[in-house]
Every structure is written in C-alpha cells, then in structure tokens.
Simulated assay, not measured.
Amino acid sequence: MIKIITESKDQVSNEVIEYLLAAGVRFRRINSDIFSSFSETISNTKESECEVIWHRRAFKQLNPSEIQKYPFTYKILDEQDVVNKFIEKKNYFENNIYYGGYIEESQHNKLYDLYLAKKIGLIVPDTIITNKKSELKAFKKDYAKIITKPIKDLIRFRNKNYIYSSPGTFLIEQEHIDFLDENFAISIFQQYIEKEIEIRIFYFDGIFFSMAIFSQNDERTKIDFRNYNYAKQNRFIPFKLENTIQKKLKELLKHKKINTCSIDLILTPENEFVFLEINPQGQFGWVSKNCNYYIEKFIAEKLMINDEKIIKKRFK
C-alpha cells in the first residue's frame, strides 16, 4: 500500500495522485490539516505490514478540531508531536520505504546545515549568530555588504485588522546597526554574496532536479528571488549541476539522513557554487513545470516501483 501524508491544498500531491489513479494502484492519502482517526498497536505478537510512505507535508492531525479550542491545547499538541515522531521512527526502524519526514522539518536547523556544508567542503557565506552590537559592528567592517534573514521561519501573525510579517532577507545598513541596543534578540548575519544566478534544486531518492533563476535582472529580486515580482517574473531554465557539487550535496544529505528536500545555491560571477540552505519539505512544483521535469510523474513511478517490490516480497 502507498501512503501519502500531505495537505489538502498541496497541488503537487494532487498531480502525483493523478498518476497513481491512472495506473490503478492502491493508495491512501492523509491530509494533515484534516482530523483523521488513528490507532497504532505495540504488541508482542502482531507484526506490521511494510508500506511505501511519502511524507510530503506537515504531520498527521490526530486531535479533533473541537479539542483545539481549549486553553490546554498546547499540551495536547505536544503529545500529538510525540506520536507523529514515534510513527516516523517506527517506520524507519521497520525498514519501510519512507520518503520525506516530519521530524527533520519540525526540528530543522539551518545553522547546523551551514556548519555541515562547510565541514564537507561546500562554500558557505561567512556567518555570525549574535545578540551583541559590538560583534555585529566588527562583522560589518569586514564586508562591503551584509544581510540578515530569519534563523528559522518568517514571523507572521494577525492582530485585529492587520497582518504583520517579517521582511525575509534584506541588506543591513549602518543606520540599522546604530538603532540597536548593545544587546538585542539573537539574530543571524551573513556576508552578501554577489550572484550570477540563483539555483533551486529538488532532490528525491538520489536524483537532483536543478533550475537556474535569473534573479539579478530585477532590482526587486536581486537580494533574494523570494521577493517575488509577480508583474515581471524571473526567467527560469533547467540547470546541469556539476558532479562534484552533486557528490558533496549527497554527502550532506547522508549526514542529515534525508532522501528528499529542496536546496538553494548561488552561482557567483567567479563561477563558484555557494550553499545557502535546505528546506526538507520545500516546494518543487514550479521547478517541475518551468523546466519540464515532470517530477510528479517521477515520484509516482518511484512509489509504484517500491510498492510492487513489497507486494512481490510478501507473496514469495
């Protein structure tokens, strides 16, 4: 049985499922934003059947929505988190064919990714994590330009009639530093890397699907292509990733024990590849469509091939 854990509005999941439907294979879809009944047995006698699991987005919603209205919701969510992590660890231990994951996404640490990337020989932006103004001033003196961005995720919340959101990646000017107290909230700062192009990569089970993004042709997207200009889209084309970079990225993912993710790189005007970050459950539909990669078909075929292997093994 193929099992897909995703969200009800995730378009790439819909497209993968269309291929499964066309092939007439059995599958089960679990939408993380919708409550689903759940039971799991830990028994001395009962053995679980092997499955092919693609954990595309988020986690299983194991608590009815009515319960989440109460003041102690945070405690129930903590327990749900433990159950979701148990499910994933159990599947790995039992050698189920498991793509993606909740654990790596929930505890994702971009700082550790930078450290690992540097250790295996990838170039990374010089980075400082600090809450001291004096350290930031010293760091700024070393580089013509520096940037800051969220350590983990963008801040976004609603208050009455307004939605507040952090700006993502942006350049730090001297006036920003002057405004700070001697100690401030812990933050990340990096040297600004000049770009020839930005590269978005989707990785699945040993295969890299890479796309070049010509973000430098637009002032709005120069600092970060995610400052989207919907009126004037960046140009996107397929990109062939060098074998040496592929090997280093595979080594990095081996350390992290993940078999699918999205990766962001920069190619500098000096033709050097610079590692930026990994997104364990990153979007890839736009990479697939802009480059005619048909990644959704590739994933569906991988799931079906592995499901067939399990079926044959079961009836040997």
Rank of each mutant, 00 (worst) to 15 (best):
F38M: 10
K240R: 10
Q191D: 10
K85N: 14
C261D: 10
F209M: 01
E173S: 09
K222N: 11
P64S: 14
E18W: 05
D81H: 14
K133M: 03
W54V: 13
I266L: 06
P167E: 13
K89C: 11
M304I: 05
K232H: 13
Y192E: 15
I186M: 14
I177N: 03
K46S: 08
W286K: 01
E15L: 09
N95Y: 11
Q283E: 03
F170G: 14
K140G: 03
F157S: 15
I305V: 07
I172E: 15
I147K: 04
E242C: 13
I305N: 01
K132C: 14
R200I: 00
P64C: 13
K118V: 02
I4K: 01
K149Q: 07
A144R: 10
Q61I: 05
I258M: 07
I223A: 14
F225C: 08
F225L: 11
K90Y: 09
I237D: 11
I76T: 05
T73D: 14
S166N: 11
P269S: 04
F72S: 15
D264A: 06
E182V: 06
Y294C: 04
E242L: 13
V52H: 00
F202L: 02
T260Q: 09
Y19L: 05
I213V: 00
I34F: 12
S65A: 11
